[in-house]
Simulated assay, not measured.
Amino acid sequence: MKLAGVTKRFGDKVAVDAVDLEVPAGSFTGLVGPNGAGKSTTLAMIATLLAPDSGRIFVAGHDPVHQREEVLSALGIMLEGFSLPERLTGSELLEYTARLRGLGEQWRERSADLLEVLELDHATSTLIVDYSTGMRKKIGLAVALLHRPQVLVLDEPFEAIDPVSARAIEDLLSQYVAGGGTILLSSHIMDVVERNCDRVAVINGGLIVAEGTLECVTGGRTLNDTFLGLVGQAPHRKIKWLE
């Protein structure tokens, strides 16, 4: 996956500013940045939900603007704010997804495996409207993986996930990458990125301010310390009435 000079504006605000980013095939790349840095806008353009104002994007060799169907076939997407059909159960949602994508009967085995690994098999009769936030994250990941995409784009997949479920998701994503898959993941949880990703890109103010292997970017420091050094820290201020 590659972004070359990608820019996106909303009125006078430049949300993404001439971003160049390469995510090598088979890599697990973390995209980190403060709120409003341009992470979600970047992922939305990759996912074909937004068109860039300028620049080019290539996903598995395809251009999302001109080859949207090919990109969506190669891509698994889990973005913040995606709505789900709430009157379906998790297994019904996976069947619905499989039929929309025209998957053969292999979807049944894949669905059962994903529901078990993500610990949703105990809630087979629960409607998504009654899912917790963590359960919604997990079924969203299952939907993204069901068609065995070449590339996964994940926006904050570990938010509201308990530690046991987080480890199950990490193991699942590790298996996916070991099988040749490519992941671009955004997260505010630095230790998750540090533990799982082999590459990292830091975005701030719509600009990529550092990018490369984890070791190259951090230079032996923790990712959290590196991140704060790159994007800056809020000034320390004492609140007298709390003392």
Rank of each mutant, 00 (worst) to 15 (best):
A4F: 06
T7K: 13
A18Q: 08
G33D: 10
N35E: 04
A51P: 08
P52G: 12
V59Y: 00
H62A: 15
H66D: 11
H66S: 15
Q67H: 06
E86L: 07
R87E: 13
G90F: 05
S91V: 11
L94Y: 04
Y96L: 15
G104F: 07
G104K: 10
E105Y: 04
Q106N: 15
W107Q: 12
R110H: 09
D113T: 13
E119W: 01
L120P: 03
L120D: 04
L120G: 02
T126G: 00
L127K: 05
V129N: 06
T133V: 05
M135Q: 10
G140Q: 00
V143T: 13
R148N: 15
E156G: 03
F158P: 03
P163E: 09
S165L: 15
D171I: 15
G181S: 10
T182D: 03
I183G: 00
L185Q: 08
S186I: 08
D191T: 15
D191F: 03
V193R: 05
N196R: 13
G206D: 08
I208Q: 07
T213H: 07
L214R: 11
L214S: 06
T218H: 00
V231A: 05
P235W: 10
H236N: 13
H236C: 11
R237Y: 10
I239A: 14
I239D: 13
L242M: 07
